[in-house]
Design a protein around this nucleic acid. Structure first.
Lengths: 341, 341
DNA sequence: GCTCGCTTCGTAATCGATTGCATAAAGCCT
DNA sequence: AGGCTTTATGCAATCGATTACGAAGCGAGC
């Protein structure tokens, strides 16, 4: 049996398809009795609207695509969750695309975005504009974009951010208050806006406290666990070591602590460690990680709300372009008073 | 300027829309020269196909929805990644829906699935059939479904699984080989198929070794970190304690170890712990976690491949319904020889 | 020269819902 | 009663691509 169409409902209710459509989409424009009989007919036939037909006629897709750099990274999952919940409540579908999956070429993703498959884009990847402009077939219009977490100064799309520099400053303040004066930093990946913000915030905070800013206390990293572990190797090789390390992400902090643990260096007794993100496991790591909390679900929800505004045609005023959410220092056990003279 | 349509391309190439469509979809059915001029016209106009129109005409959606119970749970992200990469390579869009997000009512999700928005479903939630049948407006056809990780014996949809019982047996074998004879288990959530499989496998392995199966050594849990922590509390209150604990998930293991750590109980010196999943952080936990590895990306990829088969109309033969992927014991440092007499 | 077969392409119907415009009915006022 | 406004509904065009069917063109074989 074929799926019932709007004509089937119309026939059963004894009205035209136009009326059925109106009864469903603008109930107020239809007489009470008609509305009722349409509702009955819908129930009796088990009618479900054909989304493709509706989308074609309405010239939209009813979907939003969320661009995630590396879906396998758990950091993004809670943000995605916030986005999804907010969009689902508005009846919008959520498409996902991985911008950095090794087996999916970038060109494919860009084609995808240009195919009118989505009414809007939430990008967790700040490098998107660079990718798009680098891709030959550019010059195509993309739907409205909102950036979440990361962003890109080269375009003026709205973005939801956290106060990264403030977070770095809070980490420094906390460590300084524990008596640490030799602070190191494991950076994020180069070319990443968050890396810059956090590093610059860290440096500025050191300077304002007249603490040393030593190049060899800055370790390369990329937010990954592995890079934290590599940094641990470097730390161990230093002649003069920082007594506290601020990591650009929680995962990096885990890798760092884990690497130190292998060398029997204790946290926080021998070195204090601060992370960034406050992912769920942070509180249950050993030792529980002192970190800068990002409200991840809220970031996702805010991005979704902003995008909905844009899709619905509200103009975003200039001072509305950027929404900065606060971060919070969560003190746990990976930091302790400095034990060295 | 309006987006170019197929008629614009046809006009520029001096052919009919039918030919354009054929040149794009079945290149072999069109003369070489025609194909070329169509290609030129496409490039010149910047034509992008209108997905909605194509879907309407083709009576499909070109999308697959992945049902994730709790998107915020990092366990699922790598599976999702595997699904996404495989489907994207086939040109299918990936929709996600959270079946357990508190703010999204179940009914909405079910309506969603019935709306012909997707050509197929990958469900990571084995309880889906129960939810659907419990929902009043049922009796509606759902597209083909493939289960991944979890499954449901009440329906005969294909499923991709891992050998959970074997995994439990491997954990027991490992612990027994270290001299442990008092083994406990932190279970998953009740009503979950994986919980049953792992617990039954655990019990069977104990029995075959003539080891004690003591009810008070089975702790309630739900795969979460928090439940592992609660189990730690229970473990501490026992008069006679198991010297080794097999946890239904890595996260539970982390919660357990973390809870014990608070009470100054050491792992593995005082108690050995085995997890299940081998999520990324497991190798970098302190101590690095001995666990049963599930090939998560491969599970996702296999589920996607199976679903593609079904969507493309291949019949799944009976002995093809179930694909069981192997698990592997990964020995790290959370297990050690039993130190008690 | 004629027929047959193959390749290539165009015409027009079709997918299912939405909506501008027109019409009919009903109510209201003078 | 006649004219005017308001409300409720139907008719038919439309969104943009696909595809069944048939026609035209071409070459080969006799």
């Amino acid at each position: 049996m074929r799926a019932p169409r709007i004509t089937d409902v119309a026939k059963m209710a004894g009205v035209s398809t136009a009326t059925v459509s109106r009864a469903l989409n603008q109930p107020d424009s239809v007489a009470e009795t008609t509305r009722q009989s349409v509702a009955d007919a819908v129930a009796k036939t088990g009618y479900r609207i054909n989304i493709a037909a509706q989308n074609l006629r309405r010239q939209r897709s009813g979907a939003v695509v969320v661009l995630v750099p590396n879906l396998g990274n758990p950091f993004f999952s809670e943000i995605l969750s916030g986005v999804e919940a907010t969009l689902a409540a508005k009846g919008l579908s959520v498409l996902i695309a991985d911008t950095k999956h090794p087996s999916v070429p970038t060109g494919l993703v860009i084609e995808y975005l240009q195919s009118r498959r989505a009414d809007g884009i939430v990008s967790l990847d700040g490098n998107l504009p660079d990718l798009v402009s680098a891709y030959p077939g550019s010059g195509h219009a993309l739907p409205p974009i909102v950036y979440a977490c990361e962003w890109n100064d080269a375009v003026d799309s709205p973005s939801i951010r956290v106060d990264n520099a403030k977070g770095a400053a809070m980490a420094v303040a906390h460590l300084a208050s524990l008596g640490h004066i030799r602070l190191g930093h494991i950076c994020g990946p180069e070319n990443n806006i968050l890396t810059r913000e956090r590093r610059d915030g860290f440096v500025a905070a050191l300077r304002s406290r007249h603490l040393d800013v030593r190049p060899d206390w800055f370790f390369a990293g990329d937010f990954s666990i592995a890079s934290g572990r590599r940094a641990a190797g470097e730390w161990l090789r230093l002649r003069q070591r920082p007594t506290a390390v601020f990591c650009a992400s929680d995962e990096t902090a885990f890798g760092f602590i884990s690497g130190l643990h292998d060398a029997a260096v204790r946290v926080p007794e021998d070195v204090s460690v601060v992370g960034f993100d406050d992912i769920e496991i942070a509180r249950h790591y050993i030792p529980p990680l002192t970190t800068i909390r990002q409200p991840r679900a809220e970031i996702g929800a805010a991005a979704a709300r902003k995008l909905i505004q844009m899709v619905e045609g509200e103009k975003t005023s200039e001072n509305d372009k950027m929404e900065i959410l606060p971060v919070r220092l969560v003190v746990r056990s990976s930091t302790a008073p400095c034990s060295q003279d």
